[in-house]
Structure formats: structure tokens, C-alpha cells
Design a protein around this nucleic acid. Structure first.
Length: 254
DNA sequence: ATGGCTTATTGTATAAGA
């Protein structure tokens, strides 16, 4: 089974790229973040024509997450249960016996902002919920935009990013706390080229200079770890006209 | 870099992203 995650930065703008990518890559499951549209605007029909059923939890302008699947989805749930949140950042479904969590973790903006406080509260609730979800569903995969570069090697210039969000010790600890639940960063289960990133700033020719960060991740539970066959980042959509600033991350499971 | 793109909004500037 092939899984992928992609922050599309507006599905309204990026639908042609998504359809092309599905056709070329044939994933079984694709998780999207930042669809930035209400459910009524979501292109269910176009995706169905491409062979994918969808569940979408969206809102106007910001956030919005979706799971696209070749197979039936069961026990669909939006948001983090028991966490009061007016932002659409999580959608979950069971697919072929695997619990699939699609998440758009808050950016945090700056360490001294309210948005950062929200990010840390959000991560705490996310961790607590994943712990209970893991006990219910040992075969679990968590895909999405984490807005955390777990290690210095996941950042093009750690010195320049010092004191900013995505790399702060508290955020990295929150990421480690997720791993400590019994999750694994699937990308790091395999040999990778140095300076592999999943996001590049639109400005300053960030992509051409490979000034990027690895902030999009696919975490797998202990039970799924031995089924991992390969993991990679597909940079090719970032080279297209009007690209998303993020690019797909892919995991293949036996 | 005092954010140089990009997206969305009942817009003609602002907010947010990362």
C-alpha cells in the first residue's frame, strides 16, 4: 500500500497538480492539508473520476484536511476529540484495517505569539489522543504537515532559524513525545540523501537554492514498522508552474 | 532583512503561512 501526504496550499488552485500526481504515482491513500475550502466546494466528483473517494474537513480561507483513498473508509472522524478547536486540522479514517490520521499541525508563527501557545496546547492534545487511538488501533499511520523540523539536519540553515518556530526545543520535544508513544519517522527508516526537504519558501528562490525544511512527515506505529518498504520525498511537483510550497512525502507499505 | 512570494478575502489593503 502506498501512502502519501501533501500540503497543497489551496486545493482550488492545486487540483490540476493533485490529479496529475495521482495519475503518475498511483498512491492508495493521499492525505491533503490546507485545502482552504468549505466541504461544499471540495472536488469530490473529479477525484472520484480519478479513482479516489474522499473525506474532507474544511473551512473557508484557512486550514482544511482531506483523505483520498482507493479503498473504502470507515469510522471517519474529524478534529481531536475532546479538544475544542474551531480550526479544521484533523481527519481520521480506517482503511484496509489501518487507522489513518491526516493532520495539519499549527504553524505557531513566532515563539512569543498566541499562535505558538495554541500550537503547543494543540500538540499536547494531539499526543494524548494518539495514545488512546494507538491502544484501539495498533496499526496506525499519522501523515501530515507537522510544522516541526525534528533535527538540525532537517533545516537548511539551523543557525539562521535559531529562535524561530519549527525548530525550537519545545516543538522538537513535542515531536519526540509523539515518537515515544511508539511511532517512527518512516522517512528515517531508510537511507536518504542529505538536505532532503519537503517545504521551501516561495521567496528568495528558496527551492532553487534548496533553502528548505523537512516538516511534512509520515509516522508509523510499531506494528507497521516492519511493513515499511520505502520512503521518499517527491520534489517534482515543486518545479511546476504555480506550485504549492510543500511537496509530497511518500511511504510504501507491504 | 524592516519577509523580497502566494493565497484568500465580499479586497483595492490585510492576514497568514513557515
Amino acid at each position: 500500500m502506498k501512502f502519501a501526504t501533501w500540503n497543497v496550499n489551496s486545493l482550488n488552485v492545486r487540483l490540476p497538480h493533485v490529479l496529475d500526481w495521482l495519475k503518475d504515482n498511483q498512491p492508495d491513500v493521499l492525505c491533503l492539508q490546507e485545502t482552504k475550502q468549505e466541504d461544499s466546494k471540495f472536488p469530490y466528483a473529479a477525484l472520484l473520476d480519478a479513482g479516489y473517494q474522499s473525506v474532507h474537513k474544511g473551512q473557508k480561507t484557512y486550514n482544511g484536511v482531506a483523505i483520498l483513498s482507493r479503498y473504502a473508509m470507515h469510522d471517519i472522524q474529524g478534529n481531536i476529540p475532546n479538544f475544542d478547536d474551531d480550526q479544521q486540522r484533523v481527519v481520521t479514517a480506517s482503511i484496509n484495517g489501518i487507522r489513518v490520521v491526516c493532520a495539519y499541525i499549527p504553524n505557531g508563527q513566532a515563539l512569543d505569539s498566541d499562535k505558538y501557545q495554541y500550537k503547543m496546547r494543540w500538540l499536547s492534545a494531539f499526543q494524548a489522543w494518539l495514545k488512546s487511538e494507538l491502544s484501539l488501533y495498533p496499526e496506525l499511520v499519522v501523515l501530515g504537515d507537522y510544522n516541526i523540523a525534528p533535527e538540525d539536519r532537517d533545516c537548511h540553515d539551523p543557525a539562521a532559524w535559531l529562535g524561530q518556530v519549527l525548530v525550537s526545543p519545545a516543538e522538537r520535544l513535542a515531536f519526540q513525545n509523539l515518537l515515544d508513544l511508539g511511532l517512527h519517522d518512516s522517512f528515517r527508516l531508510f537511507e536518504q540523501t542529505e538536505k532532503s526537504f519537503s517545504w521551501w519558501d516561495y521567496r528568495m528562490m528558496g527551492f532553487r537554492r534548496n533553502f528548505g525544511m523537512r516538516i511534512d512527515h509520515i509516522l508509523v506505529s510499531d506494528s507497521l514498522k516492519s511493513r515499511c518498504l520505502s520512503a521518499h520525498i517527491d520534489k517534482s511537483p515543486r518545479k511546476l508552474e504555480r506550485p504549492s510550497d510543500h511537496t509530497p512525502v511518500v511511504l510504501e507499505l507491504a
